[in-house]
Computed example of a mutant assay.
Amino acid sequence: MKTNKISIFYWVSTIVFALMMLADGLAGLAHEATGVAVMKHLGYPEYILTILGIAKILGALAIIQTKFDTLKEWAFAGFTINFIGACFSRLAIGDPAGELIAPLVALLILSVPYYAWKRYKAAKSYTPQLAVR
Score class of each variant (00 low, 15 high):
residue 75 A to P: 01
residue 34 T to L: 11
residue 70 T to N: 13
residue 57 I to L: 11
residue 82 N to L: 15
residue 76 F to P: 06
residue 70 T to K: 11
residue 46 E to V: 13
residue 57 I to R: 02
residue 61 L to Y: 00
residue 63 I to V: 10
residue 60 A to H: 05
residue 84 I to N: 03
residue 70 T to L: 13
residue 58 L to A: 07
residue 31 H to N: 13
residue 87 C to Q: 09
residue 69 D to Y: 09
residue 80 T to E: 14
residue 74 W to E: 04
residue 30 A to R: 10
residue 74 W to K: 15
residue 39 M to C: 07
residue 36 V to D: 00
residue 43 G to F: 07
residue 47 Y to L: 11
residue 67 K to P: 02
residue 28 G to N: 02
residue 79 F to P: 01
residue 69 D to G: 10
residue 79 F to G: 00
residue 79 F to D: 03
residue 34 T to Q: 10
residue 67 K to G: 03
residue 59 G to S: 06
residue 79 F to W: 14
residue 78 G to N: 05
residue 40 K to T: 15
residue 63 I to M: 13
residue 78 G to L: 04
residue 48 I to K: 06
residue 73 E to I: 14
residue 61 L to S: 03
residue 60 A to S: 07
residue 64 I to S: 04
residue 39 M to H: 11
residue 58 L to S: 00
residue 32 E to A: 11
residue 52 L to C: 05
residue 67 K to N: 12
residue 46 E to I: 10
residue 86 A to V: 06
residue 86 A to D: 11
residue 66 T to N: 11
residue 41 H to C: 08
residue 37 A to N: 07
residue 64 I to R: 02
residue 85 G to W: 00
residue 29 L to M: 10
residue 28 G to F: 00
residue 35 G to Y: 06
residue 48 I to A: 14
residue 39 M to F: 15
residue 76 F to E: 10
residue 40 K to H: 15
residue 65 Q to D: 00
residue 37 A to Y: 08
residue 77 A to C: 13
residue 73 E to G: 04
residue 68 F to G: 03
residue 62 A to Q: 03
residue 70 T to P: 03
residue 83 F to K: 11
residue 60 A to G: 03
residue 56 K to Q: 09
residue 59 G to N: 06
